[in-house]
Nucleic acid binder design. Structure first.
Lengths: 208, 208
DNA sequence: TTATACATGTGTAAAATTTCACAAAGGGGG
DNA sequence: CCCCCTTTGTGAAATTTTACACATGTATAA
């Protein structure tokens, strides 16, 4: 089988990048080479081939990769051949921001619930999504079949909320809170640090 | 000198993480060990020491690092000892979202301008920030001393807008558009791919 | 003063990731 | 059918990143 060796996380990240290229070139050609993908992405062409080879032999020597096929393959590898329900937990500035951001939905992600603890927010609706009481998380998660919790709560509350997410049997967390969360290892956790991204820029700018 | 060897990007990313820990522990202790930082962050303690050692000898053997000192050091290393003016370019869903998100401002980043090409948006104000015509980018950038452009425009327009940013002499771009931008190498570019983050999660969930 | 426990800074080893480089194939033209 | 150009898939090398391990320094207590 193909999935004997462990696949680097970085490879998975690049799959997303390759997928994106297709929406930009698909119209003009039916096929693309690793060199072509390399040019579009800035990733070394050997790297491209190696990334794809982890999952199978999708290319044809002398020809390249069928865009249609490869698109379908990567879509399937990334689990994007179906929809995923997500809930936003914490409807403060960032949470509201993420709720408004339709980019999540644009691919296969649907934000179908929002939760907060603030009585002034609960029962309100934002962008057509009702805000539930966080206390009802387990019920909401079950009912709406939530599989991804998008966390944007205050730092002090983050771990406690994460515990509730785990208790509600939601299997994955996308954490926007700049705090290290401890979760059982069967729960998938991914951190996004927006301030950190800016800091990487100022670090580089400072040296001038 | 301390800056002879090249510092890994990953090290810089971890500095942000260390810095964050201090706001959570500072009150209780005056000092922290690499082991302590390791426990807070999940990063190996030798890694912590190596990261810090790139920039100088901040610790004391048998004692650890003075939190106050280390905080000041990292703050300075990351260039966070002053404020940075940022502009949000593209006030669609994500742009609005980012504009509302005060987390950027919470540290040393100030979003002081917003720009768009849509006549219906230009001259409006959002969160107290006036939306300018993108055509005026160079003037706005000069006047407001913009040093970071936060890009959230449609994919088709991204490269062209990036060119304008470069022409406006803005030295750094934080790009939220899932497109590879080509910029001169004196311009700092950092990509944030929100959909990609979710895709990393679904990839892992799919395998069950 | 000496023993003990702690913790840094760093040389070295290990692991992971990226890049090179080439044999093996595919395709097209004559 | 043969030649030539292209491009994959993949060992092996190179590079980068992480982890180990320990000599060296610090503090405390008896």
């Amino acid at each position: 089988m193909t999935r004997k060796v462990k696949i680097p996380v970085s490879t998975v990240g690049r799959l997303s990048i390759y997928l994106r290229v297709f929406s930009q070139v698909a119209k003009t050609q039916g096929t693309i080479s690793s060199k072509g993908l390399a040019e579009w992405t800035g990733i070394n062409s050997a790297q491209v081939r190696k990334d794809l080879a982890y999952f199978g032999q999708f290319g044809r020597r002398g020809v390249g990769y069928s865009i249609q096929d490869l698109k379908a393959q990567i879509t399937s590898i990334l689990g994007l051949d179906r929809e995923w329900n997500a809930a936003i937990i914490g409807v403060g500035h960032l949470g509201t921001a993420l709720l408004m951001y339709r980019g999540f939905g644009s691919r296969r992600f649907k934000v179908t619930a929002a939760l907060d603890t603030d009585p002034d927010k609960i029962s309100w609706e934002l962008e057509g999504i009702r805000i539930h009481d966080l206390a009802d998380l387990a019920a909401v998660a079950r009912e709406k079949r939530i599989e991804i919790a998008i966390l944007s709560v205050p730092a002090e509350a983050a771990q406690e909320v994460a515990n509730q997410v785990v208790a509600a049997q939601i299997p994955a967390i996308l954490n926007f809170v700049p705090v290290r969360l401890v979760v059982p290892k069967h729960v998938l956790l991914r951190d996004v640090d927006l301030a950190g991204e800016l800091e990487a820029l100022t670090y580089a700018m400072r040296k001038r």
